[in-house]
């Protein structure tokens, strides 16, 4: 399934060069947003709400903030990466190349995930300027971050193949992902919600992802870590399955 390593590298480098062209914007954006979040949430709200489950509020929002940005960045980068060749027509070359679907996915998703992880790391570093964040399980935290970046990018890749206009490209991140992440406990603990809302929120898949990521930081989350890991694995497998179906049927790639 993987034999054209040079092909993978060509696409990967092409994508990384694309990110490189907007390097400073890509770098500054997460730094500025993180700073803004800390000013608004950390100082304004945090002053009134000093601790969540024994964790200072400023530190508490770091995993959620990382996740929120990584989620939106992954989707927009990965979807754009595959949508553009479709839109300009240059995809003919990829389709005519001796490249397997898996290789194509590895290249595009790998590049987008690399960028997401870099952005996640920048947010993490920026957060340290404002608060003291201790990571209880550093290895798990890195592993979780990588897995999430890849999964979100797979999801973005699907959207990029599915989208037939720039509007469709935007609509899922804006209308679905952002609200779900925001309402998924990025900035609060589910314990703070009234009982009925808490139940409703448990239908939001993003809750499990954020909770798991937060667990790697503080050793506690809204749901058990095993449940979170199961959710991530499920999401990952689902995205991968959809992508392989898309390639096998040529869905919106070939006529």
């Amino acid at each position: 399934m993987i034999s054209n390593l040079r092909g993978i590298r060509a696409i990967y480098q092409f994508e990384m060069a694309r990110f490189g062209r907007t390097f400073w914007t890509s770098l500054m954006l997460p730094v500025i947003t993180t700073a803004l979040y800390f000013v608004v949430f950390g100082s304004a709200i945090g002053g009134r709400m000093s601790e969540v489950g024994g964790v200072p509020y400023g530190a508490f929002i770091v995993p959620g903030l990382m996740m929120l940005t990584m989620f939106t960045e992954s989707i927009s980068n990965a979807s754009f990466g595959i949508y553009m060749p479709k839109w300009t027509g240059t995809i003919y070359e990829m389709l005519s190349a001796p490249l397997s679907p898996l290789e194509t996915v590895i290249a595009y998703v790998g590049a987008a995930a690399t960028k997401s992880v870099i952005i996640g790391a920048i947010i993490f570093a920026t957060a340290h300027l404002f608060v003291d964040v201790q990571v209880a399980h550093p290895l798990l935290m890195v592993g979780f971050m990588l897995l999430m970046a890849v999964t979100f990018c797979l999801f973005g890749f699907i959207i990029g193949i599915w989208a037939q206009s720039f509007e469709q490209l935007q609509v899922i991140p804006l209308l679905v992902v952002y609200p779900l992440t925001f309402l998924g406990g990025a900035f609060y603990s589910l314990d703070m919600l009234p009982a009925t809302w808490r139940t409703v929120t448990l239908f939001n898949p993003v809750v499990y992802l954020i909770s798991g990521f937060r667990w790697t930081f503080f050793g506690q989350g809204d749901v058990a870590i095993e449940v979170s890991m199961g959710a991530v694995a499920l999401f990952f497998a689902l995205c991968l399955g959809i992508i392989f179906w898309m390639f096998r049927t040529g869905y919106r790639l070939k006529s």
Partner: peptide
């Protein structure tokens, strides 16, 4: 394949895009 329509990238340089194609087809 040289397709009928002019499908090209915009921001890449000529050298980069041609080298890219070679890589895509797995050639050193």
């Amino acid at each position: 394949l040289v397709p009928q329509e002019l499908h090209t990238d915009a921001f890449e340089t000529v050298l980069a895009t041609v080298s890219f194609s070679r890589g895509l087809f797995g050639k050193p």
